[in-house]
Each structure stands twice: as structure tokens, then as C-alpha cells.
Amino acid sequence: MEWFNVGKIVNTHGIWGEVRVISKTDFADERYEVGSELGLFKADGSKPITVKVASHRKHKNFDLLTFEGYSLLKDVEPFRDAILKVSDKYLTELEENEFYYHEIIGCTVVSTEGETIGTVTEILETGANDVWAVQPSKGKTHYIPYIEDVVKSVDIDNKKIVIEVLEGLLS
């Protein structure tokens, strides 16, 4: 079974077992739906715990969650700095030209002329569109916007992305 990061527990919230989560998922409503099962990976490296979401609400820039069987502050304090992950069996099919982060990170980026530009190392959310950080074998990171004018094809099976290098894009 493979696990994929959906968020990090950064603190507790209140006295009734709520945890404050910084989400790393575009599907917060789906991932944190009441009854959803998540893997809780503690910072100490111990065996992951399966938790079931009991409640979810938004508060400022955080997702606040409670888990079944963990109703008090003392129950969830050990979860601070834990990573919440979803099992691959809960991943859903995406629409055309939509991808999970784990599918894009690690892909080789090449120009339409066949020149290797680098490897996607990170995805940054800007509000307008995602920006892919591409690390070449030598030199500084390039930031490639995920827009139709630039990204020409994405081949997940072969981990290859073809882009049109617009003027100034790689400088």
C-alpha cells in the first residue's frame, strides 16, 4: 500500500481533541470528510495509526479535525508534527489534464526541441495557476507555470513533460 501526504498537524486547538492541520491537498473536503480514514505518521517514526475523521471545519488558514476515539486535548497532543496521509485505495480518478502532485514530482521536463531542462522537485500554488519548480542537473531552479502556452504534454507513465520554452522562461 502506498501513502500520499494530505497535511501536517501543526498544533492542537481547544480542549476537545481538535487538531490544527496545514493541508497539502486540493481535495480537503473529500480527504477530511466525516468517516474518512487517514494514516497518521508521527514524527518519531513509530508505526502509523489509522484514524477516522469525526469532524472537519475551516478556521483561518487551517483545517480543524477531530478523530473518532480521540475526544480530549490529552489524546491528541502526541499527534503534533504528525503527517496525515491517504492510502492509494482512496485516490479518485481526475479529469483530463489534472494530476496528483506525486504524479508530477519527479518527472523529467524537456523542451519541444528535445533538450532536457531538469526534474520537477516541487509544486507551488499561486492562486492563478500552479508553478512547477524544475531543478536542472547544474544551475539554479527554473519555475515553469502550468499553463497551456507552456506545458504542451504530460506523460505520467513515462514521467516526461514537454514544454514550450518561451522567451525569458529559463533565465
Rank of each mutant, 00 (worst) to 15 (best):
W3P: 00
F4E: 01
N5K: 14
G7H: 14
K8Y: 07
K8N: 00
H13L: 09
G14W: 07
W16A: 06
G17K: 06
R20A: 10
V21Y: 04
V21L: 12
I22K: 12
S23E: 09
S23Y: 08
K24D: 01
T25D: 14
D26R: 13
F27M: 15
R31C: 11
V34P: 01
S36C: 04
E37M: 12
L40K: 08
F41Y: 14
A43K: 13
G45L: 14
G45I: 11
G45E: 03
K47H: 07
I49R: 14
T50P: 01
V51I: 15
K52W: 00
V53E: 06
S55Y: 12
H56I: 00
R57V: 02
H59G: 02
K60C: 00
K60Q: 08
F62A: 04
L65M: 08
T66Y: 10
T66W: 10
T66L: 07
F67D: 13
Y70K: 08
L72W: 11
D75F: 09
V76D: 05
E77D: 02
E77Y: 13
P78F: 11
R80Q: 11
D81C: 00
I83L: 04
K85D: 03
K85M: 07
K85E: 02
D88K: 11
T92I: 10
L94N: 01
E95A: 09
N97T: 02
Y100D: 03
Y101W: 11
Y101Q: 10
H102G: 02
H102N: 09
E103G: 06
I105S: 04
G106H: 04
V109R: 06
V110F: 01
T121F: 05
E122L: 07
L124D: 07
E125A: 14
T126M: 07
N129D: 03
D130H: 06
V131C: 01
W132V: 05
K138L: 13
K138T: 15
K138R: 13
G139A: 03
P145N: 03
Y146S: 12
I147W: 07
D149Q: 08
V150Y: 08
S153V: 01
V154T: 03
V154D: 00
I156V: 15
D157H: 09
N158L: 12
N158A: 08
I163M: 05
L166C: 01
E167D: 12
G168Q: 07
